[in-house]
Nucleic acid binder design. Structure first.
Lengths: 177, 177
DNA sequence: TGGTACATGTAACATGTTACATGATTAG
DNA sequence: CTAATCATGTAACATGTTACATGTACCA
């Protein structure tokens, strides 16, 4: 029951618990669906955070159902902790793009290999953009989800535009031997 | 001397060590300068990775200099491990945008608070973009660094465009009571 | 000679990842 | 009755963060 500060992962679980009670399994699925595009969390984390939040009195466990399903319900303390977390300034973004390291050190790479990597990465971004756009059409009713999806779309569009200007930027790299 | 796989953080240190030998302190500063915009690493991590890589024979420590400065030098094994890491497919991007959680759950927030948060975030992005653009002017000679910087610029431009379309997207959110 | 920047590192903890172990229910 | 899926969770490890402890050299 020690009071601990919420992290964003725990907070998002509490956010998802504001409606019905959900089991750990449900939470994994729901999180994947609702925030999976911009926030990853694993099964392990979910169960760990649930155990911790139970200890802290932010959620309560209901009686085990059919397959040992255990519904978690948010408490008033949980709502309060969530509201406090939500009203605080969001922490800084975390962006780590391994490809940029590859590019930065690409002089230690055979030229052909870089082109391969870039092509594969570009394709992955294009695929994600297409999936987002398809999703976009089916989200006309939910403004906040649309807003987060739009962020993803903008992000992927920017990535593609960048991929397309890359050859021009890097052409000077190739040493003229 | 157990062989361990490289992680991106260790690899980037090896990348930076391809020129001169550098001390842990130097590496922190150099990393901040060269990859700081898209890859964070702390002092603690640097010393930990250096200790580990020394154990693994990827780098060697030179004789302590003036202020107990210890120059680290990459070994052939280190170069090999780095080359192998670099040629591999980059791992997937890691993007975590806490603000998107804030927005997704913004119905639990007083309306005015959301506007405040958005304004502050937008300003932060605008500031970063300005800094990048200023930097851009002074980078005409280094194509790979320019390429990574351009990624940052594209990313920030996308963010700003998204902030500007946000009010329109979210206006439907406000329940008409 | 006293403060600042340099330079090392450890300790403790928080968070995230991967792999595994266990069993219940359901669908075919 | 058997395979797939649901559902729990632990263990071990990797990575990242924050705070602290220690001392050195330089500069005003």
């Amino acid at each position: 029951m020690t009071v601990r500060g919420l992290n964003a992962t725990a907070a998002s679980l509490l956010g998802l618990l504001h409606g019905d009670s959900l089991t750990g399994w449900d939470l994994v699925a729901t999180a994947q669906d609702r925030i999976g595009n911009f926030w990853t969390l694993t099964q392990s984390q979910v169960y760990r955070e649930l155990a911790r939040m139970t200890e802290d009195g932010l959620v309560t466990v209901g009686a085990p159902g059919p397959r040992d399903r255990k519904p978690y319900t948010i408490t008033d303390a949980g709502r309060h902790a969530f509201a406090e977390w939500l009203a605080g300034a969001p922490t800084h973004d975390q962006i780590r793009v391994p490809l940029l390291l590859t590019i930065l050190f690409s002089d230690h790479l055979e030229p052909g290999r870089l082109a391969e990597i870039l092509a594969a990465e570009r394709a992955a971004h294009a695929g994600r953009l297409a999936a987002y756009r398809e999703h976009e059409g089916r989200l006309t009713d939910d403004p906040v989800r649309l807003a987060t999806l739009r962020f993803g779309i903008r992000h992927e569009e920017a990535a593609l535009a960048w991929f397309d200007e890359l050859p021009g930027l890097l052409s000077a790299t190739t040493p003229p031997r």
